[in-house]
């Protein structure tokens, strides 16, 4: 019996393909894409201002609300944060990526890659939590800052209205530090991958032609690593845009996109506006991905 089924399957590869494909496609196509579609539909609904009930009629009213100054400000603030985090991560990721790709011996290299990849996959929430401890007013970072007599500098930084706050653990500066920390591995790996592909002969040729090590670095290595930086920035940018855990735990009363979506959807019960605001990061990411593809970033993924 089993062998007859087996023979039948062998003779009908199309049926086998269908049997293999139907379950995952049913799940991802229907459940996941269906949900995204439901979200899209909801962004075209609106909420009745008086009753707070969702009006299920097509309207662009909700999208218009995104352009209210308060909401635009949220978008600008979040995009600014995402850009700052991306730049700092690129700077901090480079030395380690460069070392792994070009200098580390094979065994050490394997270990270093594992060491970078572990925090990329694990303990996201716990790693945010760590900064709650470190940045606390009475915490370890303040202690070090005061040890070096820099308490005044910290107070001055915290007094700047747009980025400051009552303490590091309740301010945009603190959020910026935490974001840069948690997304750093996402920048290291693509840069390392891109650098890995720079042929050693090219670097030797540059040296043979009389370039000093720094010149080689600047004119040969850096341009070839750039697609890796762009690939990494896809993650740092996208992840910062949609995050609400960091703003909720380390931020102050100034909203970020993820946080706004979270509260519109939750306490405010305004699902259409939450849905419309989510489309913001989606559109930004699609545009970003298209630009990144032009810059050759996908080869470095």
């Amino acid at each position: 019996m089993l062998s007859r089924i087996s023979t039948y399957l062998y003779k009908t590869p199309k049926l086998v393909l269908a049997l293999l494909l139907v379950p995952p496609m049913l799940y991802m196509g229907v459940v996941y894409l269906g949900s995204l579609f439901a979200l899209l539909i909801n962004s075209f609904y609106s909420i009745d201002d008086f009753s707070g009930i969702i009006v299920r009629e097509f309207t662009l009213k909700t999208y218009a609300q995104i352009f209210y100054p308060a909401n635009l400000e949220i978008f600008m603030r979040t995009a600014g944060m995402a850009a700052a985090v991306t730049v700092v991560d690129a700077l901090f990721a480079f030395p380690l990526a460069y070392y792994i790709a070009k200098f580390a011996a094979p065994r050490l290299k394997t270990w270093l890659i594992i060491a970078v990849t572990i925090p990329l996959w694990s303990s996201y929430l716990v790693r945010v939590y760590a900064w709650k401890l470190i940045l606390a007013k009475e915490g370890i970072l303040s202690w070090f800052i005061n040890l070096f007599g820099l308490g005044g500098v910290l107070d001055w930084l915290l007094s700047i209205p747009e980025i400051g706050g009552s303490s590091l653990s309740l301010s945009p500066i603190g959020m910026f530090i935490a974001f840069s920390y948690i997304w750093l591995p996402y920048m290291i790996i693509p840069i390392q991958t891109a650098l890995e592909r720079v042929p050693a002969s090219l670097i030797e040729a540059s040296g043979d032609l009389g370039a000093k090590p720094f010149q080689t670095f600047r004119s040969v290595i850096l341009p070839l690593a750039f697609p890796g930086v762009v690939a990494g920035s896809i993650f740092t940018f996208s992840l910062t845009l949609g995050d609400f855990i960091v703003p909720l735990s380390l931020g102050n009363s100034k909203y970020f996109i993820g946080q706004a979506v979270y509260s519109y959807q939750g306490t405010a019960g305004n699902v259409p506006l939450a849905a419309a605001m989510t489309m913001g990061p989606v559109v930004i990411m699609i545009v970003y991905l298209l630009i990144a593809r032009k810059l050759g970033a996908f080869d470095a993924l």
Binding site: V31, Y32, G34, S35, L36, A38, L39, N42, S238, L239, L241, G242, D243, F244, G258, V261, Y262, Q265, V271, A274, A275, T278, P281, V282, M285
Partner: peptide, 15 residues
């Protein structure tokens, strides 16, 4: 690839 909040709120809306 999409921010987690997109997946989250999409599923919540659908469910």
């Amino acid at each position: 690839a999409l921010p987690g909040i997109v997946t989250g709120i999409a599923l919540r809306t659908a469910i």
